[in-house]
Simulated assay, not measured.
Amino acid sequence: MKDKKVFLGIIGAGAIIGLLSALLVKLGNPGNMGVCVACFIRDTAGALGLHGAKVVQYIRPEVVGIVLGAFLVAVASKEFTAKGGSSPFIRFILGAVVMIGALMFLGCPLRMVLRIGGGDLNAIVGLVGFAAGIGVGIFCLNKGFSLKRSYKLNKLEGYAFPLVQLVLLGLLAAAPSIILFSAEGPGSKHAPILVALGVGAVVGVLAQKTRLCMVGGIRDFILFKDSYLLLGFIGIIVFSFIGNLAFGQFKLGFTGQPIAHNDALWNILGMFVAGWGSVLLGGCPLRQLILSGEGNIDSVITILGMFVGAAFCHNFKLASSGEGPTPNGKIAVILCMVVLAVISYAFREKFSAKQSKKVGVKVEAN
């Protein structure tokens, strides 16, 4: 049983992240987007030319800070371990699927929480879908779903992704002509680089030390009646609400919300896909960034899948806008649910064992 200090620690982490997120919006980030892993990966993908949506192109230093913060504290606490090899391509696909769901809703699970703290009632609708998706994911876990174990790798594998983040930071600072930057739209709105980098690093450190995860909070509460991670989730909502009130950014309602739409069905289904996919992956997009900083190459592969998913979303008009979801996006979300169902079934322990046995019989016959 966790002691009082541990619970205060996760609440404190949520409080700091909520307040700093509200501060980033005050200093220039898009509304209710102090930190959004999905949106920021999407923006970075655009800056690198992976998609051509001119309004969402900017290398977001918050992502760099999250990875480097997690990396430094993991090394300092001797928790850094290079490992991988747990169904890498399936994780890549799941990363893309989670991104498609998130961009249907217009935000990752962390932004969903921050949108609630900013008064966006559409995010509460999204939370319903998110919780339902987690519930389906838990059902799959109970039926034996597993992406198998990972293996220890050369340390250079673990160092590579944090080094890539340093390269991205250098490109942001140098701003060469090969990097694309939005002149208008959400990509043109950002806090000062050093502030954003510093906030990202604080988020990375706090999330690494507390194991903060938007999916884990609901999952653990349903599975084990453990409210530890859920308290961090609630802390972000409460203190982002306080921060938004203090900065005059709070706006209650369904309409006129920044970078959001009020199509309830597709807000639910987008977050349903994000929740289900994140349970299969073992953590939300924020948690995947933290794990990548700790040397987990499976999480790096997941993040790369999210980059490609973001590119697909904007190159093929899958992402929603303030006007609502697109026809292509609706089809993509339905296909994502089919993909999740197939993966959930195929990676059950019993099914995998039967397939392995069949392969063994065929080998013997040959």
Rank of each mutant, 00 (worst) to 15 (best):
L223S: 15
P61V: 09
Y345C: 05
L269Q: 01
V167W: 06
M99N: 04
L23A: 11
F351I: 15
C39E: 10
A74W: 02
L171S: 06
A76V: 07
K155M: 13
G9P: 00
A174M: 12
F40T: 09
R149I: 11
L24I: 12
G200R: 02
G31L: 08
I290W: 01
N142E: 12
G137K: 04
F272E: 01
G34K: 03
I66T: 07
V63K: 00
F241A: 12
G243R: 00
L194G: 05
N142V: 04
C108D: 02
G248Q: 09
H261Q: 10
M112A: 03
V67W: 03
A346K: 14
L340E: 04
S227V: 14
K152F: 15
L121I: 11
G129V: 02
L172Y: 10
N32M: 14
S182M: 06
F241Y: 15
A82F: 07
S278P: 05
V6S: 15
G69N: 05
V279H: 05
V238I: 15
V199T: 11
G49Y: 10
V55D: 15
K362T: 10
F221D: 00
D3Y: 12
A131I: 15
L171C: 09
D43F: 13
G217V: 09
M99K: 05
A131T: 14
K83G: 02
L194Y: 14
L169V: 11
A196G: 15
Y151V: 13
S86E: 09
S352R: 13
M1W: 07
S278A: 15
R211H: 13
I343E: 01
F241S: 12
R42G: 03
G305T: 08
L19I: 12
R60C: 14
I331M: 11
